[in-house]
Amino acid sequence: MTATVHRLAGRPAPSLDPMIGITAHDMNRVNAVIIDRMQSDIPLIPELAGHLIAGGGKRLRPMLTLASAAVLDYAGTRHHRLAAAVEFIHTATLLHDDVVDGSDLRRGRRTANVIWGNPASVLVGDFLFSRSFELMVEDGSLKVLKILSNASAVIAEGEVNQLTAARRIEIGEERYLEIIGAKTAALFAAACRIAAVVAERPEREEMALDAYGRNLGIAFQLVDDAIDYVSDAGTMGKDAGDDFREGKMTLPVILAHARGDTETRKFWKDAVEGRRNGDAEFERAIELVRETRAVDDTLARARHYGQRAVDALGMFPASSAKDAMVEAVEFAVARAY
């Protein structure tokens, strides 16, 4: 029987605990690198960076580097610094994103830009990007440097693409998938792939791990975008309805708009363009994404990409690390239920 993202009734809810367990020892080493490399003689830098880095995140992206290395039976230590580089890239993008979006909450806590202001958040994000590149150069692999630097560029392109797509009702599913493939999935893919490079495994194993990470990243973002319309700040770690108020054309909105009648389509146009985006309108938006099954179908697409991620691991032998990576996919999809 092949692995699948669908759990049998009565089975325990999927969890990240197995992945956390298999990577715990290595993650201690990664955390030590992170703490060391976020230090600076300028006190504001470690203070602001530490606020976000210690903010309760699961360190999923560096954990994927470590889990991928475990799947390959890699016995070295290069992946510790590279996993830290991955986390610095991710943290830098979060600092910049919160400034761009004007966000007030991140993982249930006030964002750095609210506490220290936008200029400090942007500049500390730049500092963390620089630290990540220092770590890549120290590793000495041009291939690793190429993979992670390309991912950084693609993430930035994805964020600009999303910015230019905001408040434009005509954005369709294809453009949306381009955006999330860049701004979210690219780093998931790179985080997994670099493990195969340091383990000196063949290209096909590199690309299998790339495919796993990329499809997991797309599934992860699809679920995030769905639960913005079915959750609250306590669950999401951000204000419910943030995407709605920012006029982001996420898949639930794209599907609900496409399936609506003339009156409903006018509501979505006004909402996306910023003319109807208060609390009452958000409640109406929640009703519409449910009535049109836009959330259900967004989650169905997430399950599809999740299954593709699981299938990408098919070439690797059975192991507890592989099982943990499969369960991480199941967890990513199940967050909405």
Rank of each mutant, 00 (worst) to 15 (best):
L313V: 07
T235I: 02
P12Q: 08
H25Q: 14
D228H: 02
L95Q: 09
E200Y: 03
L105G: 15
P14K: 03
G241P: 12
V124C: 05
A240Y: 01
V137G: 10
E138A: 15
I22A: 02
R265Q: 15
K266M: 11
I169R: 02
A182G: 13
I155G: 00
N277V: 10
N277G: 14
E87F: 02
L60F: 13
D126W: 01
S40Y: 11
Q221D: 10
M63Q: 10
Y229V: 09
A120P: 00
P43R: 14
S132W: 04
V154L: 14
D101H: 07
L95D: 05
A271L: 07
E206A: 09
C192F: 04
M19N: 14
L177K: 13
P252R: 01
V289L: 06
G213R: 02
G217T: 05
I227M: 12
E170R: 03
A233M: 03
E246K: 11
R110K: 11
P18E: 02
K58M: 07
N113T: 10
Y176W: 06
I20C: 10
G213W: 00
L82N: 01
D17A: 15
R290S: 14
E87Y: 07
M63C: 07
P12A: 06
S319Y: 02
V272R: 10
Y212N: 12
A280P: 05
I147H: 00
K248Q: 10
E281T: 11
S121L: 06
S320F: 02
R110Y: 01
G306V: 00
R293W: 00
T77M: 04
H80M: 09
R245W: 03
A83Y: 11
G274P: 05
M236C: 05
S132G: 07
E291L: 13
